[in-house]
């Protein structure tokens, strides 16, 4: 079953003449892991924000489990269903103590205190940060902060997790940490994951890779499909994982002997 559908979606910011997204028509099925690739300014972050009604389409419609994101009455249900994690780990942590931060969403939803406690502990264990529950977030590493941010979203018990370039500001260690956490989550809960990124190697484990360019879907397929189209990817301003370069040496090799 499709959990998020984009029905001929267009989006234009009020003060700009050019649309950021044009006629996006795509659906994400429940339990799937999709990576959305695109260079800076391709419209991929806008796509993320359309998923939980932070932005609403100027054309077409986005539906989350059948709920139209423009419908004010379903706003909270949409946001509770689609959890979002953003790029900058510092700017999404609200509280000065880890566990208070994770409790933020369920508190907003009016959940019973004892149930909040249970959810917070669960979410922190899920991301492996339970021992840090009483720490101050600003003293944690980037990767740890992102895991806290993921826990903060998990405490809402969402069905879909949208991560908007969650590793862009992290070092390789932090990146691995966050990706492993997402991977584990998927294995244990079967959650639908939408990972927006420009790191090619983060897409390898995805079921599906969608490439966005200039506000349109340029490629859509399995990682093997997409990354075999080396030239197209290069033209779109994207790389393929470095070792793909070895795969077709006859065509790709630019060593002195070949030229």
């Amino acid at each position: 079953m499709d959990v998020i559908t984009f029905d001929h979606v267009g989006f234009r910011y009020p003060d700009s003449p050019e649309p950021v997204l044009k006629n996006i028509d795509i659906a994400f099925s429940g339990g799937s892991f999709t990576a959305v690739l695109g260079h800076n300014g391709s419209g991929k972050s806008t796509m993320a924000k359309l998923c939980n009604a932070i932005l609403t389409p100027t054309e077409g419609a986005v539906r989350v489990k059948g709920m139209d994101t423009r419908d004010d009455n379903s706003l909270l249900s949409v946001r509770r269903t689609v959890g979002m994690v953003f790029q900058n780990p510092d700017n999404q942590i609200v509280a000065s103590v880890v566990e208070d931060d994770v409790a933020f969403a369920p508190e907003n939803l009016g959940v019973e205190p004892s149930e909040i406690r249970r959810r917070v502990d669960n979410a922190l264990r899920r991301v492996g940060m339970y021992e840090f529950r009483l720490h101050a977030p600003h003293l944690l590493s980037g990767g740890q902060k992102q895991r806290i941010a993921i826990a903060g979203v998990l405490a809402m018990q969402p069905e879909i997790l949208v991560l908007d370039e969650p590793t862009a500001m992290l070092d390789p260690y932090g990146r691995r940490e966050v990706l492993a956490t997402v991977e584990e989550l998927r294995a244990e809960t079967g959650m639908t994951v939408l990972l927006i990124t420009h790191h090619m190697d983060e897409c390898i484990n995805a079921d599906r890779v969608v490439v966005i360019s200039d506000g349109e879907i340029a490629l859509d397929g399995t990682p093997a499909d997409v990354f075999s189209r080396v030239e197209t990817m290069r033209d779109l301003g994207l790389d393929v994982p470095a070792t793909t370069d070895c795969a077709k040496p006859g065509r790709m090799c630019r060593c002195p002997r070949c030229r």
Partner: peptide, 11 residues
């Protein structure tokens, strides 16, 4: 950014 993140968490 924080305001957006708070909205995303149903504030």
């Amino acid at each position: 950014e924080l305001a957006t993140a708070m909205e995303c968490r149903c504030y």
